[in-house]
């Protein structure tokens, strides 16, 4: 699915790096816990999160996440959006809950961008 299609499915708005709207998204990783994104996220994924600070952008860059969608109508501070722009990280703003955002993308065929792990 392209980034543009993701924006459409999420009824969102692409507010950073709009020139990358044809980029291919291969999976989704959803979490507010950045250590989980680092531990279990897979490269090439879209990160859906409600965490809007600078560490969401840094984590995405470090983990080879290719775009971020902020759920629940949250909007990061301008400094965070600027950081994303500098790093070439597309940002989607959407009003859906994390659950709804994930559900819609799954329904449209996007698979998990996280490793499966048995309960410890």
């Amino acid at each position: 699915m392209t980034l543009n299609e993701v924006v459409h499915v999420l009824e969102g708005e692409l507010v950073c790096c709009a020139e990358k709207d044809s980029m291919e998204i291969t999976g989704v990783c959803a979490s507010d816990l950045m250590s989980d994104v680092l531990a279990f996220g897979t490269a090439g994924s879209l990160l859906i999160t409600g965490l809007t600070n600078a560490q969401s952008v840094n984590t995405a860059e470090v983990a080879d996440v290719v775009a971020i969608a902020y759920a629940r109508g949250k909007r990061p501070a301008d400094s965070v959006l600027l950081l994303a722009e500098e790093k070439g990280m597309p940002v989607i703003l959407c009003g859906l809950s994390l659950y709804e955002a994930c559900g819609r993308l799954y329904e449209h065929g996007l698979v998990s961008g996280s490793e499966i792990r048995e309960p410890q």
Binding site: L33, A39, N53
Partner: peptide
């Protein structure tokens, strides 16, 4: 925790 860390994953993640 508000930064998205502090769940006791840091050192295990480094080791991994």
């Amino acid at each position: 925790r508000e930064m998205g860390f502090g769940a006791g994953m840091g050192l295990p993640n480094i080791k991994r």
